[in-house]
């Protein structure tokens, strides 16, 4: 049996506030295998986004063990964790987070060039064609609709052919119809073997994942 991509055991995250110590996440244990999809659901403030940032190595837990691609993240510094993500992890954010001064093509080519992949522009072009934006290559994000921007973000995430994709409320900023088109695209592309960790409070979207995990007040409740 292959090693899980993510292995988290008893993860906790506390932050210090003016009112004292606040536990944001408490005792979370989970694992994600290759090609698997996991939805993290819960109300606002339940700790979903904090958990996603810990799993992606963007932040560090206060307690607990976390392995990403078999590496213990506690033993790695920020650069080490970044190197682990390079070329293997994709992100889709709620607010799209495209580089505003880069064209759609440049935005998609950016992670390919960063990973040192040859023919970055060609691959970026074909990724954009896959999401139906072959005619919008030279447009700046501000010239695109919200749905188009999220499709560029999806093209950027899949262009590197990631092993693992993190999506944080990918349809949160979109209307229902556009959101449905974007989620179809997301699941179509990840069906080729990419593991998906999806944070959402949309039950319909969560239901499309193989597994669901519900958080409440920082604790896993289901």
């Amino acid at each position: 049996m292959t090693e899980p991509l993510i292995e988290a055991a008893q993860l906790s995250k506390t932050v210090v506030t003016a009112a004292g110590e606040l536990t944001v996440l408490d005792d979370i244990t989970l694992s994600v295998a290759q090609g698997e999809s996991l939805a993290i659901i819960g109300e606002s403030g339940s700790g979903k986004t904090t958990l996603l940032s810990l799993l992606a190595g963007l932040d560090q837990p206060t307690r607990g063990k976390l392995r990403l691609f078999g590496s213990d993240l506690a033993t790695l510094d920020e650069d080490g964790r970044a190197a682990l993500r390079l070329g293997r992890v994709g992100f889709v954010f709620q607010a799209f987070h495209l580089l505003p001064s880069f064209t759609a093509l440049e935005n998609v080519a950016a992670p390919l060039e960063l990973a040192g992949i040859d023919g970055a522009m060609q691959r970026a072009r074909s990724a954009l064609e896959k999401v139906g934006l072959g005619h919008r290559l030279d447009h700046l994000p501000r010239q695109l609709s919200g749905g188009e921007q999220q499709r560029v973000a999806i093209a950027r995430a899949f262009a590197v052919e990631p092993v693992l994709l993190f999506a944080d409320e990918p349809t949160g900023n979109l209307d229902q119809a556009t959101g449905a088109r974007v989620s179809n695209l997301l699941f179509d592309l990840s069906s080729c073997g990419t593991a998906l960790v999806l944070v959402t409070h949309d039950p319909k979207l969560a239901a499309r994942c193989q597994r669901q995990m519900r958080l409440d007040g920082g604790r896993r409740v289901a």
Binding site: A56, L58, E78, D79, A82, A83, L84, R85, L86, G87, R88, V89, F91, H97, L99, A110, P111, L114, A115
Partner: peptide
């Protein structure tokens, strides 16, 4: 914003 984005995509600080 760009720095955070590039870091999340795996760029090294030195780069």
């Amino acid at each position: 914003f760009e720095h955070a984005l590039w870091r999340s995509l795996g760029a090294a600080q030195s780069t």
